[in-house]
Amino acid sequence: MKKVFFTILAVAFSLLVMAQEKTKQKEVGLSFSNLDEFGITYKVGTQKAMWRFNTLLLTGGKTTMKYPEQYRQVRDEYTDKDFGLNLMVGREFRKSIDDNFEFRYGFDLSFSNYKLTHEDKTMEDLHDWRKTVSKESSYGFNLVFGFNYVFKNKLVVGVEALPNVSIIDGEIKKSAYYGGFETEKSDISGSRYGLKNSSVLLTLAYRF
């Protein structure tokens, strides 16, 4: 699956080079999913068709919780760390509805990666320690349907729906210590399709 990711990056770079050679219009700005997940959007092309390059930061952070004193003999604390990233490369076509509104449609190739690490331990060194690491990658295809509202031909506010289908690949690795180290590994595979709230993307961009 890593080959697929590098192939998408190679295609994205090639498209970006070709787009820059023939560009008459550019847009750069921010994209939002669920109003709390954001990223960067960059588009190049003409008034009728543009290449799309989106990087959407899904999530990232670290949480540590200490158990109450009366439970410390059983559990001391646990820590969760997670990070996710979504890349999309595609093509969109535009049709003017009036001076300010544009209808747009097209497609994206997408790649996403998500990693979650959960560590649970007691106070007594390694007498009771557990760690779970989940990694999941997704490779997909999105359709694009949306609208733009353009202020003074410079500021672009857009909304788009992204029906999608994707293939999932990953693994769950569990490590523990109960008088000796133990490890267990499980593979993740599957597919997803459909349209949900997180498949709606809002964008705010500057056109030049």
Results as ranks from 00 to 15, higher is better:
K43S: 06
K43W: 03
K43Y: 05
V44R: 11
V44K: 10
G45K: 02
T46C: 08
Q47G: 14
Q47F: 12
A49P: 04
M50A: 06
M50C: 03
M50W: 03
W51Q: 05
W51S: 09
R52L: 14
R52H: 11
N54T: 05
T55D: 10
L56V: 02
L56W: 00
L56Y: 02
L57N: 03
L58W: 00
L58H: 02
G60Y: 04
G60I: 03
G61F: 01
K62G: 07
T63W: 08
T64N: 13
M65V: 15
M65I: 10
K66M: 13
P68Y: 00
P68Q: 04
P68T: 01
P68N: 01
Q70E: 09
Q70K: 10
Q70C: 06
Y71A: 10
R72I: 10
R72M: 07
Q73H: 07
V74W: 12
V74L: 13
V74D: 12
R75S: 09
R75Q: 12
R75N: 13
R75H: 12
D76A: 13
D76S: 14
E77L: 13
E77W: 11
Y78I: 07
Y78C: 08
T79Q: 08
D80Q: 12
D80A: 15
D80L: 14
K81R: 14
K81E: 07
K81G: 01
K81W: 01
D82V: 02
G84A: 01
L85N: 02
L85A: 04
N86Q: 10
N86R: 10
L87I: 06
M88L: 11
V89D: 00
G90L: 01
G90I: 00
R91M: 12
E92Y: 06
E92P: 10
F93Q: 07
F93A: 05
K95T: 15
K95I: 11
I97M: 08
I97G: 06
D98Y: 08
D98I: 08
F101C: 14
E102N: 15
R104F: 15
R104A: 09
Y105K: 13
F107N: 10
F107T: 07
F107S: 08
L109Q: 02
S110F: 00
S110Y: 02
F111K: 01
F111H: 02
F111P: 01
